[in-house]
Write a protein that binds this DNA or RNA. Structure first.
Lengths: 342, 342
DNA sequence: CCCGGTGAATGAAAGGTTTCAATTGAGCTG
DNA sequence: CAGCTCAATTGAAACCTTTCATTCACCGGG
């Protein structure tokens, strides 16, 4: 047992000395126990326990040339969606005996850059990222310098990375198909800013659904927001309520659940009945969607699986000698609840 | 520019060769630029850029004997409370130019253990943890072997660690004080299992408030749950509604917001008016508390500051020569919203 | 002209691990 | 018992960085 004052770290050398073997043997006990006789193993293990030996990961990494860690740079740590994706990544990492660095860029380019640089210096095996800008040049530089990188929940035209995403156009289509089937003709889309790819694609899906149903796409009422938050959803609710009754929609498709929850809350406080006066569809199916006062119809994405698959692609890229980039596109699913079903 | 095939890592040695200086000089450019002439610095910088040099953090760590990273093992990654605490820790880490390993034990002892062991092997500067069991022996072993450890959102009798927590007894008291002031006499407490310290303390606060008001503490209606989730909250709502009208409480204090939200949802679907028929107080003041159909009165904890303070204590412990453990206790605050205000 | 001083650059050593070619020793065959 | 095999063990080298004592070159003062 080490005295609690000065801590000179216990190294394999110390263990070797106590067990009266060479330090190579100690290393073998740790990494190739089959090559060491049982008696020696026991002696070494005893010495390790007595000294409180803890492997030094830095030295291992240095020797190995790469770490046993992945990095995940997420766009928004306070959004349950990304937390769930992280969970999937974590599962896959754990299954491969790897650690995971989780970083939160908070949608700020400079934080993102700083984290990426850190991860590169750490020599992580690879990086998963939901980038704030899918065209940032750093995303190309990292793989070129030897750190594989997989893009999560975004895609890119060019064939430069593996990526994993969900078909947001289809998701938008599912949502509006559902509303059309229920007989709604005057439908609103709430979301923004349009700089966000997801918002554009989900809206595009809405247009497609309308066109398919033979409705005039121009009649889609668009309410643009400045972000995908509950507060913005409330604001959108006020604006919708302010429309002249003739032009007011009977159904709304929101670009995500936070918007939808804010909108719902605003409706309740303004005595607009959901779904009788206004049907609402959200997107993401976060946990609170089903827990809302009026449970929310929403488009579900396979979040965990998104993470697992992204991590699996990354691992394949690190192992394959000759690697071809792959883009995986998942299919979303509509979950119908009371907010559209009267 | 490196060819994209084989990647022999670029090291200071390569940079030195290209810049025609010794490798010690390259290191000086990185760590003590004031000791290097401007001309040489420029030459070295150019060489680094040309070769795409990336510092090897493992080697630095090995040389330095410790990493430049903290570790945070959180109890439940999908609970917004812990995400916010993490955010605070991250801020403090960033301010000190440290990285942060975020790990999610998911309230499972074996995962917790595995992460702690990993962090120790990484030679992190220190560990922050919300332990599943505050008395686990590993919590003592780590500091003894040289890794400082701070306990977050829990306290311990013994004076063995720094810790940061919020006064949960006071929080419970605030909640029930408020209900008593509104004239409620028959009050329920919803929460469980009682193996969770927070649940016990918040309930104790409720008792204190009742006693203080001269009400018989035995009249507190206790509804024990199997966890702190939305689903459990719904179940509690059903049980409350099943009580004979005479014994039914007019107000409920829930051990956290998830329970409260579930309860609220159940009330709405059973046409129990909130707050007219039943007033509800939650705990944590998560974002969705204010976004609920009936905005929720809740007890707010300084989550970010909890994280920041914990990290600051940890850093002080790593720096101070002679350290005395410190316990910080924050004060919660009642946020009144519509769920109690008719 | 020499000396001391100063600013800049050098090169070896250290840090803990893993790997691998080399060595040892025991057991077996002929 | 010589020669061989095989399993177990050894010890040195390599991974990359930082530090620090040393060296070098140059300048001004005596």
């Amino acid at each position: 047992m080490v005295a609690s004052g000065e801590h000179r770290a216990v190294s394999v050398r110390d263990v070797a000395a106590l067990a009266k073997v060479s330090l190579g043997t100690v290393s073998n006990v740790l990494n190739h126990p089959e090559a060491v006789s049982a008696a020696t193993q026991a002696r070494v293990q005893a010495a390790m326990a007595e000294l409180g030996f803890v492997r030094n990961e830095s030295a291992r990494q240095l020797r190995a040339g790469r770490s046993r860690t992945l990095g995940y740079v997420m766009l928004d740590g306070s959004n349950p969606f990304f937390t769930d994706v992280a969970r999937g990544i974590e599962e896959e990492a754990e299954a491969n005996d790897l650690s995971l660095y989780m970083c939160n860029s908070d949608n700020r380019a400079e934080r993102e850059l700083s984290y990426l640089s850190r991860l590169e210096q750490q020599r992580v095996q690879g990086i998963l990222i939901t980038p704030s800008d899918a065209n940032a040049p750093i995303l190309d530089e990292l793989p070129r310098r030897g750190t594989p990188l997989v893009i999560v929940d975004r895609t890119r035209e060019a064939d430069t990375h593996c990526s994993v995403a969900v078909d947001d156009v289809l998701g938008g289509e599912l949502a509006v198909d559902h509303l059309v089937e229920l007989g709604h003709e005057r439908i609103a889309f709430v979301g923004g800013p349009t700089s966000i790819g997801q918002v554009r694609e989900r809206r595009e899906g809405a247009f497609k659904a309308l066109a398919k149903a033979g409705l005039d796409p121009d009649r889609l009422v668009e309410v643009e927001t400045n972000g995908l938050t509950v507060a913005e959803g409330r604001g959108a609710g006020e604006r919708l309520a302010g429309l002249p009754v003739r032009g007011r929609p009977s159904a709304v498709f929101c670009a995500n659940d936070l918007l939808a929850l804010g909108l719902l809350q605003q409706c309740v406080s303004m005595r607009i009945r959901v779904p009788e006066d206004l049907a609402i569809v959200g997107y993401d199916d976060i946990e609170f969607a089903s827990a809302a006062a009026v449970p929310l119809t929403s488009v579900r994405q396979p979040r965990r699986q998104l993470g697992r698959t992204a991590a699996a692609l990354l691992l394949r890229e690190t192992r394959d000698r000759d690697h071809r980039h792959e883009k995986v596109l998942f299919t979303p699913e509509l979950v119908v609840r009371r907010s559209t079903r009267s």
